[in-house]
Design a binder for these strands. Sequence first.
DNA 1: CGATATTAATTGTAGGTGCAACTAAATGGC
DNA 2: GCCATTTAGTTGCACCTACAATTAATATCG
Lengths: 149, 149
Amino acid sequence: MVARDAVREIAQGCIAVRVRLLNRLVSGICDAGLREHGVNVAQVNILVAVGHSGPLTPSEVAATLVMDKSTLSRDVEALLANDWLRKIAGNDKRSHKLELTAAGREKVASILPVWREAQTELRKRLGAKNLTGLFAAAERIWAEQSADE
Amino acid sequence: MVARDAVREIAQGCIAVRVRLLNRLVSGICDAGLREHGVNVAQVNILVAVGHSGPLTPSEVAATLVMDKSTLSRDVEALLANDWLRKIAGNDKRSHKLELTAAGREKVASILPVWREAQTELRKRLGAKNLTGLFAAAERIWAEQSADE
DNA sequence: CGATATTAATTGTAGGTGCAACTAAATGGC
DNA sequence: GCCATTTAGTTGCACCTACAATTAATATCG
């Protein structure tokens, strides 16, 4: 194996470069639409995760989104300050749960039009049929997590 | 449409949350393996892009990877300092091209084993068959770019 | 030819992100 | 019951990243 071949092998097969490219494209399009609403896609994802599956502890949210818990902690801070999330008592004195507030639910509803526009553009640019694999991959990661406990 | 439905609609269909989740998983796995080699996945992707399709101008690299050119500029700085990339004259006095050096090519070759390990883990966790859609989506973005000029 | 617009790259700045270290609380041996 | 270990969450830190503004060079058009 000579050095030249390594470049070709990675260029042709690298999962990371493709996922990262798509991430930048997708996040960029979503954030552009959300900017006027004063939120970013990371925040919306957290609100939706909590609203859909909550109440959840911060650790559960972080695991679901495969985020570092410290990153989540800082994101949640802003969401609490806006009263889009609220803390409720957990099973422990060291933990708590996060719940979507009515205001948070309305905030999510308010961005629905721009979210739909972004989805439409993304389906067109990425190819709607290519998304099934993407969704299935995410499902596998979520399934892994259920299996862990 | 009530607010509750917006949460469900986004939770069930959001492309962004899934792409971002996969990005964090993939980047995390790759970066963990690369750490001992003193590089990150962003840098490897740039070296490979330049080595595979180069010489390329910074703008061309940024477009290929769908990166902001300012982000690329700072990444390239470190790669030049390590003599993994070199600047060569461009068509213009305001532009130049980037070329992979022999040392850069060897650096890429040196990380090939950890790259392969990461690929194997990712294929297993994401499901090998789910990757075809991912690759096809990236191809569409690259095809868009050729069509632009 | 000269003013204006465009293009390439970099730099200023603000905020996002993850790893490691830390604090507090709970668990598990012994 | 007590001490070591684990777990939950936050904070310190360094770095990554993108948008906006800047600098320099080139192209365009009257």
